[in-house]
Design a protein around this nucleic acid. Structure first.
Lengths: 146, 146
DNA sequence: TAAATAAAAGACTAATTTGTCCTTTAATTT
DNA sequence: AAATTAAAGGACAAATTAGTCTTTTATTTA
């Protein structure tokens, strides 16, 4: 069983951070390089990036000098945007025990505990900008594949 | 996308808490009642409980007066036991970005944040005994279905 | 002992997620 | 303009997870 995000979403996050780093000088990154850089099947990440691109989270350009990149302003997007786009907001709102309705008024046994955990996750995602790790990735202090 | 546990695991937790409460006086609970009580397909929860029963987390008895129940000692089992049995320990150890190896020595960008979150989840599960909610469930202050 | 009842066991189906491939479209270079 | 290259787009296949059904086995009651 997965930990928190779908596989698709994990790849999406890794790809976006990879693009942020590689395109910080204005250059573009091709799918092949991204796939290699984050250890994801090439066709699969293509599909995922296509989605992120349609939603405007990453930019793309076709043709010979094409590839993916981030706009300066996109560096202010956060991981919360990526996660919401790919996985929806189950992570932010869903009940930990799967109740369709779970609220203060009618809580599951873990409602309050999960509320705190979800809040921590949400704040972490919301507080993490896409360009945030550029330097540490560059210096190989952080990694996007094993 | 799921929040944290598989559907199977969510049902497993809900069913176990239900059994804990209903069998606290020594009686047994039948699958039909459990399915109704936690809003889960009957055949599906049967399969899940069978698994929990084989692992010794819940007790079962066949035949006319049969059903599921917990041993006194089982009330000291925690949700961590249920989760580990059904979903394995991805929740406790897995990398949030899906890296196969993710460690202090070679961390993903969110390694430290996730470490804390996983710890919170683990402690919460480990600190929650199966019989813990019996009273509040009885009094309808907590719910196992919507 | 026979009938009734409940879980055990395991095969099977459906749905979702993950992953692959092929054709089209857009941009660039020669 | 033609050749090349890269993403767009969408069909398709594989794997995993969720859910259903049928037969067998154990226990109790009449």
């Amino acid at each position: 069983m997965k930990f928190l995000f779908s596989k698709t979403c994990e790849y999406a996050i890794r790809a976006t951070l990879f693009i942020a780093q590689k395109s910080r000088d204005g250059s573009k990154v091709r799918i092949k390089e991204i796939a290699k850089g984050i250890d994801c099947p090439e066709y699969f990440i293509a599909k995922i990036l296509h989605e992120l691109s349609r939603k405007g989270l990453v930019m793309s350009l076709k043709g010979r000098t094409g590839g993916f990149y981030l706009k300066k302003r996109s560096l202010n997007y956060t991981l919360a945007d990526i996660v919401r786009t790919i996985d929806g907001d189950k992570v932010f709102t869903g009940c930990g025990l799967g109740l369709k309705q779970c609220s203060e008024a009618r809580p599951c046994p873990l409602h309050h505990e999960f509320k705190k955990i979800r809040k921590d996750i949400f704040e972490m995602l919301l507080g993490t900008k896409l360009g945030e790790f550029n330097e540490e990735l560059e210096k190989n202090l952080l990694f996007l594949k094993t």
